[in-house]
Nucleic acid binder design. Structure first.
Ligand code: MN
Ligand code: MN
Ligand code: ZN
Ligand code: ZN
Lengths: 132, 132
DNA sequence: TTTGTTATTGGAAACCATTATCATTTACAA
DNA sequence: TTGTAAATGATAATGGTTTCCAATAACAAA
């Protein structure tokens, strides 16, 4: 079962890997594994909540380990709209976390949503892309 | 030119339409228009900044009018992870807007990003989906 | 062990939203 | 009218993801 292998690959990087990226990594250790199994495993891991699935607009899904005991810390993203570079940003301003929590509570009541997660991304131009 | 027609369709709804949704709407008024032109027009409008392109995870891109003179107000999204329902949420807490601005400024400096936009979505279960 | 039943697996084919191609039409000026 | 460039839409191609399905592994009973 490639579940361990996939989680292992994801735990070793800060990048946002595509299914095929992961496939190639796992393939080095388990040459027998197929791309289909990677997709299947990722799908399961996302459903369980161990892995997050993102779309950064480049036509393929990207994955990262969810926060948790073995996971990375919770973070948000800075996305360059020109080159696609993605920065993991986890140094939140103090008030930021508090307000986020407060907002979630307000929304939960008002719209009768049981909020479990959020996605926050800032878009702009990275330094390199600004200079060309 | 279908530019007007596409903008017109988008300005008449609060929904998040797919390219084909828009194609079908425009088609009623301009039966001659082709799906290709709708894609082309949307692409241009997104580049210009008049239209936003979203991915809510259902495999097709979804579009909405950007805020502005003729546009809707700026808002964030509540997404039901079960049925896919999407709520436009624009009644921000007072502090929310201020903090967002402050955060953008901090990030711009720290990571040398020229931030132009942000995407904020809360995920959870809507009332209907919670009760089943 | 054998046998039967069920779950897992991966290769190949199918799917389907989006893009690229290209011949045709339209716009517009010379 | 005529020449040139832009705009258009039908069709084909692309490519990430899913579906199918036959083969294999796991496991339980006999
Ligand atoms: Mn990340
Ligand atoms: Mn919206
Ligand atoms: Zn960049
Ligand atoms: Zn729902």
């Amino acid at each position: 079962m490639g579940r361990e292998a996939v989680l292992d690959v994801l735990s070793r990087t800060e990048d946002h890997l595509s299914a095929e990226d992961i496939y190639m990594c796992v393939h080095e250790t388990y040459p027998a594994i197929g791309l289909t199994s990677v997709y299947r495993t990722l799908d399961m891991l996302v459903n369980i909540g161990l892995v997050y699935k993102f779309d950064f607009g480049d036509g393929r899904a990207r994955f990262e380990l969810a926060e948790g005991p073995k996971g990375k810390d919770h973070h948000h993203h800075l996305v360059c709209t020109d080159c696609g570079r993605i920065v993991n940003y986890r140094d939140f301003i103090d008030e930021e976390v508090a307000l986020l929590k407060k907002t979630e509570e307000g929304l939960s009541k008002k719209y009768n949503f049981a909020i479990t997660n959020h996605l926050i991304q800032f878009y702009g131009l990275c330094e390199a892309c600004r200079k060309k």
